[in-house]
Amino acid sequence: MRLFQYERAATPEAAVADCLAEDARFIAGGTNLLDLMKLQIETPAKLVDISRLDLGAIEEAEDGGLLIGALVPNSDLAADPRIVARYEVLARALLAGASGQLRNKATTGGNLLQRTRCYYFYDRHTPCNKREPGSGCSAIGGENRILAVLGTSEHCIATHPSDMAVAMRALDATVVTLKRDGDRRRIPLGDFYRLPGDTPQIETVLEPGELITHVALPPAVDGARHVYRKVRDRASYAFALVSVAGVVRMDQGRIAAAQLAFGGLAPMPWRNAEVEAALVGQEPSPALFERAADILLADARGQGSNDFKIPLARRTLAATLRELTEAR
């Protein structure tokens, strides 16, 4: 039997101290980690249970934003009246993910750290650079319908599966952490994930033992419209083939502000400042949306069975921008 140590941390500081070893993992909802442990894709020597830490609150931040505790369950976050009123895109993204049961268990911090759903990552009989660095990527040249077209490398084409993180990326969220030396870090979500390059096994900038304690949302954009559009193979309980999180503010018929992030396309929630820059100050039109899609997908590269994601992303972006900008 794969034995592992189990510690229940009493405070964040104790949790970080408990999680010193390289092969220790924090566990909260366990909705992903336990599955991976059963298949021995993750084989931690120690689990530090953080589920009883006092990190379950959603608080108003001094800057007018919100500070979300890392242990807030996805269900609670989606239902919070402040989230619904001010960050609607986040509530919608959360509700588009997983199932009611999973959302009840899954936490805010854990959601950010989900592993990919690449078929080959889950199958120990096949090479996978993320699971076993240097063994090769089975998805390239294999079945890759659900995998990435942007930000990939020759070593890995996995996608990040989270919906929540896509909305948070559009909202310019910041991850707040506690390091083992007691320092706190504030890491913008845009800097939080790493592209695979030649180390696809390293997915974030977190240091070993570094604990996510909160996610901070900046003040909401006044008067903005929010849309989360998730395209998937069935109506629920499926990961995004393409998703778009959009927050757009209009002013006198022109796009005054635009924040757009994409899921299902890349190894991380994807955002491209040039796409937004091309939109701001412009009157919405199909041609403008096409231009935005051209910029977004300039470097997109299909791998065969996921080629369709490129036209799908183009169409979904256009439809989402139409919804975000059309007069009501």
């Binding site: 759903r117 078929y119 080959y120 199958d123 294999g142 659900i146 069935r234 109506a235 629920s236 309980y237």
Partner: peptide, 18 residues
């Protein structure tokens, strides 16, 4: 010849919403 989608997350059957 190996099956690629060999769990209920990726072998899709209709869910209630479908």
């Amino acid at each position: 010849g190996k099956l690629v989608n060999r769990d209920l997350a990726e072998y899709h059957v209709p869910v209630n919403a479908d």
